[in-house]
Nucleic acid binder design. Structure first.
Length: 395
DNA sequence: TTAGGGTTAG
């Protein structure tokens, strides 16, 4: 049964996997239920892929019932499963109950915090782990670098980079090098990112190229980004095939440099040349590009004509541009779309209210303010890094 | 057969 389960999970037929598991459990006879700890790992994986919170809890209960709760593989998988459906507290609780913690389960918990948008907590755990004398391996530092990138924690990122370079016997693999490039680019040291990229020579993969393109784009260096994109596609030795994420970097670069026509061309070429269908993010980039050039009506028409229905983020991009450029009429039209999609999003109403204020339309402003009495704004947050430790502030 | 690694629009 485990072999069949494994096949289902591998081919993403998670429904079949769970049905098989439920039937086996239902048909059990006494102590002989033909479910072992290997089964549990596969079932948890399937639950995670389907985001079934309740099912994970059921399996956890079963784990306790069958006495598998002290097996480190099962415990680690529970940490990952809870984290995968956003239940970080439950993941941490499983971790706390573990008697022996190795590098894999530490890394699992650190990833849980990174994946659920709490990089600061992730870095604290990274330090705790070393205090407990568990040595990080290449996976742990890859995840920790990701936390640094999310936080903009350059000093910590530099410390980790130096740690892996000087630690004897530490193997820096491709994924780790990519994480280093991404960390430097996200933390503002684009020069260091580029040096790493240049040093890697022929060992780069698509992710390496994409990280560097996105890095340049984020820094407003459109020319460098687009040049790299052309280079990767036309190299004599080993052409690189861009993927959909590469195209996000390319469109971001066009957006930051105001290259409307070039952006349109690239958006078209992704399906024509590589058979990649644009996702919401790609259309979002295009809307951003048109907005930044001041072509608000074109942007609106673009959103209406998109082959997929725009989500709130795309409309919000347009609303922000309307507010910034003082186009009240279009702004109101866009806001009504947003009200239908996400009525309780306080920030959209604040944007609209500010736009009315800038146009001295006080009555309209008051009306928006009155409408949002029941919604709550998400507080703004900022952070600063001092001596490799990050301090966060909320206002 | 056993657990962990992302590059993604505002």
């Amino acid at each position: 049964m485990n072999a069949i389960l494994k096949g289902h999970v591998k081919s993403k037929s998670t429904n079949k996997a769970l049905l098989l598991f439920r039937n086996t459990w239902r048909r059990r006879r006494g102590d002989d239920c033909s479910i072992d700890s290997y089964t549990v790992l596969l079932v948890l994986k399937a639950c995670m892929m389907r985001s079934c919170e309740e099912e994970i809890k059921h399996v956890h209960t079963l784990v306790l019932k069958l006495g598998f709760h002290c097996i480190v593989f099962v415990q680690t998988m529970l940490v990952n499963a809870y984290s995968g459906v956003g239940l970080v507290k439950d993941a941490h609780k499983v971790f706390d109950e573990m008697r022996e913690r190795n590098v894999v389960c530490w890394t699992g918990l650190i990833s849980a915090y990174v994946d659920n948008g709490r990089p600061s907590r992730a870095l604290k755990l990274f330090r705790d782990m070393q205090m407990e004398n568990v040595e990080p391996d290449s996976v742990t530092v890859t995840v920790a670098l990701c936390a640094c990138a999310d936080l903009g924690a350059l000093e910590m990122g530099e410390w980790i980079h130096s740690y892996v370079r000087h630690k004897r016997g530490f193997k820096m693999d491709l994924q780790l090098k990519n994480a280093v490039i991404n960390m430097y680019a996200k933390c503002g040291d684009i020069g260091a990112a580029r040096r790493m990229f240049d040093d890697m020579g022929g060992s780069r993969n698509v992710t390496t190229w994409t990280s560097m393109i996105v890095g340049h784009a984020l820094h407003g260096q459109a020319e460098e980004a687009l040049q790299l994109f052309e280079e990767m596609r036309s190299r004599k030795h080993g052409v690189m095939v861009p993927n959909d994420v590469t195209y996000i970097g390319v469109l971001m670069a066009c957006s930051h440099a105001g290259l409307v026509e070039e952006g349109r061309r690239h958006l078209e070429s992704m399906s024509k040349e590589y058979g990649l269908s644009p996702r919401m993010a790609h259309y979002g980039c295009m809307v951003d590009l048109l907005c930044r050039r001041g072509q608000l009506n074109d942007a609106y028409q673009f959103v209406v004509d998109m082959p997929i229905r725009a989500n709130a983020v795309v409309w919000r991009t347009l609303l922000g541009a309307c507010s910034l450029q003082g186009n009240i009429q279009l702004g109101a039209k866009v806001r009504s779309q947003l009200l239908a999609l996400e009525p309780d999003h306080a920030r959209d109403n604040v944007t609209m209210s500010n736009a009315y204020a800038a146009a001295c339309m006080w009555d309209a402003k008051e009306m928006v303010r009155a409408q949002m009495k029941h919604t709550r704004k998400v507080p703004g947050c900022s952070s600063i890094e001092l001596e490799s430790s990050v301090h966060e502030f909320v206002s």
